Computed example of a mutant assay.
Amino acid sequence: MTQDVAGSSTDVLVVGGGPVGVFLAALLAQSGLDVQVWERRDTTPWGSRAIGIHAPSLDAFAAIGADVPVLAEATLVRHGIARSRGRTLGTLSFARASDTHPYVATLDQHRTEGILRDRLAAWSPDALRTGTSVTALHRHRDHVDVEGTGPDGAPIALRAGFVVGADGARSTVRDLLGIDTVGRDYPDRYVMGDFADPEPVSARSTALVDVGPDGVVESFPLPDDRRRYVALVGRGTPADDEVDAGTLARTVRERTGAAVDADTCSMLSGFRVRRREALRVGIGRVVLIGDAAHEISPIGGQGMNLGWLDAADLAPLLTDGVRTGSAGPWPGYARRRQAVARRAARQSEANMAVGGRAEGPAVLAREALLRTALGLPTADLLARLYAMRWA
């Protein structure tokens, strides 16, 4: 027998309690809407995963008071240095990338999620329902009837004014709507890991990108004197022996000279890269945001930020829709967000191209290009691009 969720109707149901869904829910709750978040996971988030928080996201966080606690814990990256074959090609400063946040903040994803959950709980203590999954959507002119399963596996039902799919690249909401995606898979494979930071104290607020002949090694400082390394290791699915702390530490040492200690590894992951775009970002009163609507390469650290900016754009539309009784879709929203996602995807593709393996003249040409780009006054534009001031 299907059970009604306590308070069997809500203004907005957000499916997916990751950083994007919880941020959207907090924005809506802070505006006075009744909101529920259904999150399939029943465990407390843990792990570093996505770490970069760009200036537009920090500006958006201010609306719910999340910017202050995030910045209290984060490391602030104020410069990026490009290197190759043991030589510095140039430095990129974020000093003029933003009037409010002239840096990129880095923080383990589980801590960012924790802060956003705390802000949601401040306005709606019972909004987040973990261990809860959606199984069916029945769309009507003025509401959506939602079916799901609760923490005990029992069927549940809820009536929502709007439903938002913030449930990631393998979105159940998108599948239930029958929305297809288009895109491509890239052959490059990467391994990333977090280690004790071997760089001198003077570089603890600096991102380092080495674009030597064997492929890119990126590194970003993290809180507690740690550093995230991301290395191109080849093409195809990473082999088991590549996703190994000792192997990654050795790769970093050989390509960059950094004395990474494998025994200090606190996170390790191998990944492939793909790009996907939903053919529609919603139907009627059901909307997709974040990776459910557009998945891009993690190289460049823009994906999670795109989701937050989707949420910031969508929240006032949902608030107005609830208060006036109007329904989506909102074509202007869809055009804006997918256009931003495509631009971010192109930027990520350019980052991957610059960091690919190269030989002979191609290495020299790449080094010359970076020296020129980072040495011109227009380097400030590159900083703004990386910091997503266009989003």
Rank of each mutant, 00 (worst) to 15 (best):
A160C: 10
R141E: 15
A249L: 05
G234V: 05
L176Y: 15
F195S: 00
F162W: 10
L177V: 09
P151Y: 03
D225L: 14
V216F: 10
R228C: 07
T206C: 05
Y186V: 02
G257Q: 03
L137I: 05
L248D: 15
V217L: 05
R253M: 02
A249D: 06
A169C: 14
R226H: 11
G183E: 09
A154H: 09
G148N: 07
A166V: 03
A169N: 14
A231Y: 00
D263R: 02
D145S: 15
G236F: 08
D180Q: 04
R253I: 00
P238M: 15
L208S: 00
S202R: 10
P213W: 00
D180G: 02
G257I: 02
A196T: 13
D142W: 12
T181P: 10
G215E: 11
A136V: 10
L158H: 02
T251P: 06
P221V: 09
A207S: 07
G150L: 04
D142M: 13
I156E: 12
R159I: 12
A258S: 05
R250Y: 12
D210M: 04
E147L: 15
V182G: 13
D261L: 03
G234E: 04
G234C: 06
L137Y: 00
G234P: 09
D261E: 05
V209G: 06
E218F: 01
R184M: 12
G234L: 05
L177N: 10
D240I: 01
A166Q: 04
P155N: 10
A258R: 00
D185G: 10
E254V: 00
A160G: 08
R159T: 12
P200D: 04
P221T: 05
P187E: 10
R159N: 11
G148Q: 09
S219F: 03
V146W: 07
D167N: 14
G178H: 08
P198T: 00
R204E: 08
A166L: 01
T149G: 08
R226P: 08
P155L: 11
D175H: 09
T237K: 07
E199G: 05
A249M: 04
D214W: 11
E199N: 07
V260E: 08
T247R: 06
F220Q: 14
G193N: 08
V173D: 07
V163P: 12
P223K: 09
A231E: 01
E218Q: 05
A157Y: 02
G153L: 13
A262K: 06
S171L: 08
V164D: 07
A157N: 01
A203C: 06
A136I: 10
R159P: 13
D210I: 01
A262S: 10
A245N: 14
G150S: 06
P200T: 01
L232F: 03
D145Y: 15
V216C: 14
T172Y: 12
D197N: 05
M192V: 01
S205L: 14
G148W: 06
P200S: 02
R184N: 13
E242L: 07
V173L: 13
Y229D: 00
T149D: 11
A239W: 06
A245Q: 12
V173M: 13
G246V: 05
D224K: 04
Y229M: 02
G212W: 08
V230Y: 04
G165V: 07
D175E: 07
G168A: 12
V230I: 12
A231M: 02
T149P: 08
G153E: 11
